[in-house]
Amino acid sequence: MTEWGMAIDVDRCTGCEACVVACRGENNVPVTGPVESSRGRTIEWLRIERYMEGAFPDVRMRFKPVLCVHCDNAPCVKVCPVSATYETPQGLNAQIHPRCIGTRACAHACPYTIRFFNWSEPSWESPLEQTINPDVAVRWKGIMEKCTFCVQRIRRGEDTAKEEERPVRDGEVDPACAQSCPTRAITFGDLEDPDSVVAQLFKSPRAELPLADLGTGPRVAYLQEGEWRGSVRARSRD
């Protein structure tokens, strides 16, 4: 069985936010507008977290794309009173929108803070609704939404493979964020397939699972090396 996972190379990531907009366009993520946005109600399934360290002139900045890590042992699943969120056999943490009653318990439970509540009815001022991706549900006021690992793109990939009577090839399925990335920082694939690029990257000494000590079992790994130490690396890696 396929188990989808993602590796994000933070050394490659530049924080340009192309992935954030790609995700918005792909997944019909609503624009909340200036007022709601100023109340911290922006919905971004994928966001870039920025970290600034140091004092002038030795200031350093790092960027980290943060999205649902599709936990193996997800806190959100445990707290949902109506089972609107669950773990699929392929390792996705799915949100079933018509089931959700908007308790927001999952958002409180999520240590990665990547679950979003629709505080207002999403709107697309005509004719912007023409840009809605028909492969993805439009959510409504009062329910939660979150990253799906672009399940609709996985579905299309699987459909093509099924038509051609073959398994899905490694690298064939990419979520919108990975596809758009100008630096190729995001790798997506099957963690169960030991030969897949993403499975290899999970084994890299640079790989780190976010907040892994909480026991959540993330399926997203971050790869990071640290500082420049002369033009040759201290250790040759991957």
């Binding site: 192309a18 954030v20 907009v21 004719p127 912007l128 609704e129 023409q130 758009s180 630096t183």
Partner: peptide, 14 residues
């Protein structure tokens, strides 16, 4: 690859 501005282009269309 593509930048955020390019990704947003369908919004200019509609």
């Amino acid at each position: 690859g593509l930048c955020p501005r390019g990704q947003a282009a369908p919004q200019a269309m509609y």
